[in-house]
Amino acid sequence: MRGRTGLAFAIAAVILLYPLWGLVAPVGPWQWHDSHIGSALATSFSLTGLALVLVVLAGTPLAWSLRTAPEPLRSAFEAVVLLSVLMPPLALGLLLILAFGPDTPLGGALLRLGLPTSNSPTAFVATQIYASFGYYLLAATAAFEGVPPELEQSGALLGLTTFAVFRRITLPLARLGLAAATSIAWVRALGEFGAIMVTSYYPHGMPVQLWVNLQDQGLPAVLPLLVVFLLSALPLPWAFHFFSRKRRRA
């Protein structure tokens, strides 16, 4: 039984990893110098980091409140969140530019405030927030729902204010689920291409730079960027994953 399970895992792993075989494809010498790795990496990590902080800061209290929100308010709000999650990335980008573009009243007002809504860091961060917020919210709500309400009740009966209960009971007990939610939001925002392509072609983040390199220079300029992208983006979700596994076993 154990041998069969191991074999099934091995087959699935090979299937999932097989695309990486493409990295050794004979595409010619890799172009490290003209790949714009540094600038794309800096853009992606700094702006995605900012987007992630905003998503977590806004999404965590909202997810916490959503757990105890009365019906039908909760169902209605979840329907809205699901809509944002199910939106195809390209469609999201088009809708964002139609709603926030510089020619719209809102986009014009933001532009006058010094916040251009296309081809700018503001547009980049805003698009990533739209792309990842729903995922974070759903996963964080599930994490909070895993905390037994009677433990929070015990905390209140022991004299803790609502905020203290959140800080000393809810948050520590939900931390693994919140780590997973953060990890999902990070991956979703960092890898966003379709929507970013429409709203913020400039500055080039990693996914757009991959596309540009493919168009301008071909695969030899894409593969080095891809390797750096994977090596730099994966440690965070891997760390969250292994940390949570370890804590669950402890």
Binding site: Q153, A156, L157, L158, G159, L160, T161, T162, A164
Partner: peptide, 10 residues
């Protein structure tokens, strides 16, 4: 009265 303001052991 909020729970945390009651001098209570339960």
């Amino acid at each position: 009265l909020p729970l945390h303001r009651r001098s209570l052991g339960y």
